[in-house]
Design a protein around this nucleic acid. Structure first.
Length: 587
RNA sequence: GAGGCAAUAGCUCAGCGGGAUAGAGCAUCAGAUUGCGGAUCUGAAGGUCGGAGGUUCGAAUCCUCUUUGCCUCACCA
């Protein structure tokens, strides 16, 4: 379809040039790449539409007249013959592709291994940093959105031809961890997660919550926690050991959550190992005059000329702060894996931080600093307001996945599909992931999400399970055919038989996948891919209602339709995978 | 106070490199199953695209102002 578009842009450009020459107009014909192609609002109007307004203005002629003239010229163009026909319809020049050859092309392309991939991002080395949790508590709903965005975007970039490295930067030091440690020292009695039968992250998170209780009872709690930070920084072996032990518990728990949700990383950066890396870089920048030293001894940068403020990069006591660390890790990562682009998946409350960070790196003169992106996303709000650990209005990631999986299992039971679904627990878990990931990804990242449990638990309509269901239906047809059922086994597929409107529309949808991959990658918008997956599922659903496959009386038509089902399944499987929705053969 | 982001059907959202009658899902109402899985499909109803100007042959889309909401403006992360 990409090829067809390019071919027709060239045809239209050629016709325009001929028309201009014919009229002797003193204007230049637009290049093929500059020709605007759009999709007509209704399929009856054709496959592509070319608005004539700009050329009408250029030629001082009425748009419909230009359209008519171009249509006549194209009718005589030998290169256009066989590709389709162009027709003037009002101010538009509409093109209807020759279906049989295009259908054959699409079906054979889809059947090739690796179809669905594209090349829009070829040659790029993209580092995607996401998740980046604190190690003092388990993952919550907000992390699920972050993880889904990061994982999905990484898959999309990879499909678009980029080389991708997924990195998780764990915040495993500082005051928050020390709060959990303090509470553990007071209440923990040396227990381990195993002693209480808790997942490590939930175990540590329990003490983080207990810290708030402690703080209410003991006015010295805050100071005591700070004291732990100091002892940790001073290298107190006892505190270091405790921190390592508790971090390991949390890390194991968090990794288990990644594993069950299909999220993975190529590297983990631990803040305990990276937090000092930036200081040397800042000092180097100071020497080169990129930064300046305040009278009080702090190192700063003045960004007021680009609409930002002055920013401290090293405290007056010479220690590093949050942004110093990000400067250092960016540089060190590039030394280890020379990327040309970074995407930081971090909530939108940090837009300012990343503006400053990117500007600092740019001023340090790194050539890779011009392609740094902050994929910022909105809050996940609850009907009751914001999520707050202290107020207990947090939605725990594991609990949520469990709840949705349980609901899915009930749904399978209610439909009496335990037999055909197979391992109910496994399938239910995958439905839960499909449901959650679609819920979190189908909305543009920029939007805040109002997390409505009832809606997120729903499996009907614009949801992940709907997409999974259509994939399962398509799979079911193919499975039965493979088992010898239906008329397709006796027929031969012929692309020319798929010439109906419904076939053609569905086929075009399937063929649009690679373009959609490029679009989603370029815009860094998994929601584009989620929308595509839904459209394809809905398109298939409408189509197969009216177009029997196995029961089609004509064996050749049955076989041809079967090819279309195969293509749809391939498209659904690919698209679903890109938005972290597990594909299901049965459910 | 300054900066950033958002505002589209009752609700949740698409559409925003300007273009042909603004699209889905949920909810509502009316239908569809001796037929490949009804977690489905078909149809109806539902919109001054927050408001006001402007640019343009043409604006939900671009510009300005304005209203409302959220987020930032730490030598916290």
């Amino acid at each position: 379809m990409v090829e067809a578009k390019a071919a027709w842009k060239a045809i239209v450009a050629r016709a325009l040039a001929a028309y201009i020459a014919e009229k002797g107009a003193p204007v230049e014909a637009p290049a093929a790449s500059a020709v605007v192609l759009e999709r007509p609002p209704k399929p009856e109007l054709g496959d592509f539409g070319f608005p004539m307004f700009p050329y009408a203005k250029l030629l001082r002629a009425a748009p419909p007249a230009v359209a008519a003239a171009l249509a006549a010229l194209i009718a005589k163009d030998p290169e256009a013959a066989g590709l389709g026909e162009a027709k003037a319809e009002g101010p538009y020049l509409n093109v209807r592709l020759a279906r049989a050859p295009e259908t054959a092309r699409i079906l054979s392309a889809v059947a090739k291994p690796g179809w669905g991939a594209s090349s829009g991002q070829a040659g790029h080395k993209v580092l995607v940093e996401f998740s980046s949790p604190n190690t003092n508590k388990p993952l919550h709903l907000g992390h699920l959105r972050n993880n889904a965005l990061g994982e999905s975007l990484s898959r999309i970039l990879l499909a678009a031809g980029a080389e991708v490295r997924k990195v998780n930067h764990l915040n495993d030091r500082g005051i928050n961890i020390c709060k959990s440690m303090l509470a553990y020292l007071r209440y923990g009695e040396g227990k381990t997660p195993a002693d209480e039968g808790l997942k490590g992250d939930h175990f540590v998170g329990k003490y983080y919550v207990l810290y708030n209780k402690l703080k209410a009872e003991d006015p010295n709690a805050e100071a005591d926690a700070q004291e732990l930070v100091r002892r940790w920084e001073a290298g107190d072996p006892e505190i270091r050991a405790l921190q390592e032990k508790m971090n390991a518990w949390t890390f194991e728990g968090v990794k288990a959550t990644y594993a069950r949700t299909g999220v993975s990383f190529d590297a983990y950066d631990f803040e305990t190992e990276t937090y000092e890396q930036g200081r040397a870089e800042v000092l180097k920048g100071l020497e080169r005059g990129v930064f300046f030293k305040e009278e009080d001894g702090s190192v700063q940068i003045d960004l007021e000329d680009v609409g930002l403020d002055k920013k401290v990069l090293l405290r007056k006591d010479g220690t590093s702060i949050y942004i110093t660390q990000d400067i250092g890790t960016a540089i060190h990562r590039h030394e280890g894996w020379p990327y040309d682009r970074v995407v930081y998946v971090v909530g939108n409350e940090q837009v300012y931080h990343f503006k400053v960070l990117f500007e600092v790196l740019k001023r340090l003169g790194f050539d890779w600093a011009n392609d740094l992106h902050h994929l910022s996303y909105g809050m996940v709000n609850l009907p009751t307001g914001r999520m707050k650990t202290r107020e207990g209005t947090i939605v725990d990631a594991d609990d949520l996945v469990d709840a949705v999986a349980e609901l899915a299992a009930k749904e399978i039971e209610a439909k009496g599909r335990e037999e055909s679904a197979g391992a109910v627990k496994d399938i239910a878990g995958k439905i839960a992931l499909g449901s959650l990931h679609y819920f979190l990804l189908h909305v543009a990242p920029v939007k805040d999400i109002l997390y409505d449990p009832a809606e997120s638990l729903s499996f009907t309509g614009d949801t992940g399970p709907y997409i999974q269901y259509m994939g399962a239906r398509a799979s079911s047809i193919l499975r039965k055919h493979a088992a010898g059922e239906g008329n397709a086994v006796k027929g031969r597929a012929d692309p020319a038989l798929l010439a109906g409107e419904a076939d053609w529309e569905l086929l075009k949808l399937v063929a649009a996948l690679p373009e959609c991959v490029d679009q989603a990658a370029a815009a860094m918008e998994p929601s584009v891919m989620a929308g595509y997956a839904h459209d394809l599922a809905a398109g298939f659903s409408a189509w197969y209602r009216d177009n029997p496959v196995l029961n089609c009386p004509d064996p050749n038509l049955a076989a041809s339709r079967l090819e279309l089902v195969k293509a749809v399944k391939a498209g659904l499987e690919k698209a679903a995978g890109l938005v972290c929705i597990p594909f299901l053969e049965t459910m």
